[in-house]
Nucleic acid binder design. Sequence first.
DNA 1: GTCTATATTCAGATAGAC
DNA 2: GTCTATCTGAATATAGAC
Lengths: 208, 208
Amino acid sequence: MASAKLRREMNRDRLEADVVAEAVRVFAANGYEGASVAAIAENVGLSKQNLMYYFPSKQALYQRVLDDVLDEWLARMANIAEQDGEPADVLRAYIRAKLAFSREHPLASRVYAMEVISGAPVYGEKIRERVVPLVRKDIDVFKRWIAEGRIAPVNATHLLFAIWAMTQSYADFSTQMKLVLGRGELAAQDFHEAEDTITRMVLAAIQR
Amino acid sequence: MASAKLRREMNRDRLEADVVAEAVRVFAANGYEGASVAAIAENVGLSKQNLMYYFPSKQALYQRVLDDVLDEWLARMANIAEQDGEPADVLRAYIRAKLAFSREHPLASRVYAMEVISGAPVYGEKIRERVVPLVRKDIDVFKRWIAEGRIAPVNATHLLFAIWAMTQSYADFSTQMKLVLGRGELAAQDFHEAEDTITRMVLAAIQR
DNA sequence: GTCTATATTCAGATAGAC
DNA sequence: GTCTATCTGAATATAGAC
């Protein structure tokens, strides 16, 4: 009895995960309005009506996608800046983690980016609740380092904005980068060079 | 005769400019698919059908919007890197110009960003023709500086990607920045601090 | 050039049988 | 939970009178 229910729930979880994974692709490629539930359903092998049995509305599915994106992102990025260690080492780890996310989850990054660029009409409140406090904590860490004289007195907020922008662009703007590099895909080498260049800029800027 | 025609054409130009300006707003806020021609027409005081007399299709209007966005961007950004002068001064001017564009034309930046994030399905070819050569020229300037020993041997390509990402984010991600800063709008002061921080990072990185 | 009217397609969502 | 069938609204686009 319990095991049958458990198995059913695992199947459901797996199915939902499949749907969400496909939804990320479609939302990333077309934006919220441009995405069609029918397309997502077809790609995942469900009827549109059946998909809507699991996700009652397109918005509900979209919110679930954003929730999952943010969960994954928080799991990787939370608490990096708060770790002990030399500022240079912490910043290196932070840049590396954020670039790795861009490389491993470019679609997730793009869905989030499009939502923000559109003015965060559906996810603004969640960003305020879940992202902003984390960002502020990271900024506070930078400020503490400055107060303690461990790094140069840079503008902590804009330093973080800069790190975010530089690392995230390797997911969001990879299409343009590929055109500039004349390459079909960004390769491991590109991400290494990116990491070196970004790290160099950040560490040079905080040099006392 | 000729003056009547001229006047008519000026009116038409003005009307088209009004439509394009409004279209930028709507495309930036909703993406290509999410934008509706009817909404654009209404906001500009035309009937939908009348608008489609001037722009035969939604895609044509969208392409026109992107063309105008790119024209404006090229008018400001082309040839900055190619100017004579100390690398530090040229880079300062480049960063300032790009930040000014983000500040003065955030909607233009967002429309372009969404197109690129979506994979540039309609504007990819134009980007290849009009943007990529310019970017490559700028990168070549950086490489020449390195070869001449005027700046440190950084990765020229990724340095440019970094500058683009940092400056552009003040248009594209301003919604998130405003939430972090707890402010309704980005102010002149924010852009000054951004410019200082970005310039510091770039100049520190090229320091020999 | 501008209007009324309409064709056509497509999307999200719901009802109800099984 | 899954299916067939359908409703409803919106959006692009076109036809044709004035």
